[in-house]
């Protein structure tokens, strides 16, 4: 790349340029192009930089507001809370990190789940939050994804996950690794029952989460330029001493190689999801001929649950 095309790594404007009478928090800096954006404009633009189209990370709660019809989201399993089973201690104790994550986010772990409507179409939702311990998947995240899928099976509604994660949570070691198996087991159950699963990848979606349920959506959608991959960039560079191609592990790169269906701007996401929910499920002739809720699921547990739900609905 010629020098004159090089993008400055840091803003060339000295910090003092910002007028000192501007109240704190009125402007936000785009994490990618470093331009100052009027906060309200940034929020109205769904945290996408109006100048460079960078899709900034959003919390699970913000994501729900962006995706779900107002007033339709009903959270479930919000009482699931992580425990430090292994008494894990590195530079910090895991139990302390959980505490800090809680204070920082007001969440018990890196995920929010529940049901909600998108353009009037009901889906079971599991939405990850990168701000809590890097969106890592430990027992609670794994369990809530699993329960979201079980709820989809029981109520015969599609399931949507939105991932924002660095992978499995180291501090729960093997228990985290096994969440990959647990969540993927439910994906096999969804397959058997013919329930749609849409996986939405946001920045970043990598490692253990990407190598399990996030890669198993019937349709996989990614936000522009978000990081999608298995191994970390640094790990690849260090262990293999290979030159990493431009745009490596971006959504567009992964789509180019055939592992993502749709790269979709954040403002379009809701519409795309609604359309898919319709095609795969709500307008599908198979679902209609299916007696509207008769279980084809093989597992007895889910069919029992379905019956219970049907009875509840009938009453």
């Amino acid at each position: 790349m010629p020098w004159f095309e090089k993008k400055p790594k840091f803003s060339s404007l000295p910090g003092a340029v910002r007028p000192s009478n501007v109240p704190e928090g009125l402007y936000e800096k785009c994490p990618d192009c470093y331009s100052m954006i009027y906060r309200k404009e940034f929020e109205e633009n769904l945290h996408v930089c109006p100048k460079c189209h960078y899709h900034a990370r959003v919390s699970a709660r913000e994501r729900i507001v962006m995706l779900v019809d107002p007033g339709t989201f009903q959270e479930d399993n919000s009482h699931l809370s992580p425990v430090d089973k292994l008494q894990f201690e590195a530079k910090k104790k895991y139990s302390k990190q959980i505490e800090e994550g809680r204070k920082k986010t007001g969440q018990l772990d890196a995920i929010v789940s529940g049901i909600g409507k998108i353009h009037g179409k009901t889906a079971s939702l599991a939405i990850m939050d990168f701000t809590f311990l890097g969106g890592s998947m430990g027992s609670v995240v794994g369990e809530k994804v699993t329960r979201a899928m079980e709820r989809a099976l029981a109520e015969r509604i599609p399931v949507i996950t939105v991932t924002a994660t660095g992978g499995a949570r180291m501090m729960e070691s093997i228990l985290s690794l096994m969440q990959m198996a647990k969540t993927s087991a439910l994906c096999a159950e969804l397959d058997r029952a013919g329930i749609p699963f849409i996986s939405v990848l946001s920045d970043p979606s990598t490692a253990g989460v990407m190598a399990s349920f996030a890669a198993l959506g019937d349709v996989i959608i990614a936000e522009p330029r978000c990081l999608v991959g298995f191994a970390g960039r640094r790990v690849i560079e260090q262990t293999v001493r290979e030159h990493l191609p431009k745009g490596f592990q971006t959504a567009e790169f992964v789509q180019e190689h055939g592992f993502v269906d749709i790269v979709c701007e954040r403002r379009e996401l809701r519409g795309v999801l609604a359309r898919l929910l319709n095609h795969l499920w709500y307008a599908s002739p198979k679902r209609k001929s299916d007696g509207n809720g008769r279980s084809r699921a093989g597992s007895e547990r889910s069919s029992k649950k379905t019956q219970a739900v049907e009875q509840a609905v009938a009453q």
């Binding site: 993927s184 096999a188 397959d191 190598a211 996030a214 298995f230 690849i236």
Partner: peptide
């Protein structure tokens, strides 16, 4: 570990592992 290389990523290391896990449950 699974190979952390450029070609492995290009050919979908995460997809291959995820699919294997799911299919082993069937």
């Amino acid at each position: 570990g699974a190979y952390p290389g450029v070609q492995a990523e290009e050919r979908g290391q995460f997809e291959a592992i995820a699919r294997n896990i799911r299919e082993m449950f069937t």
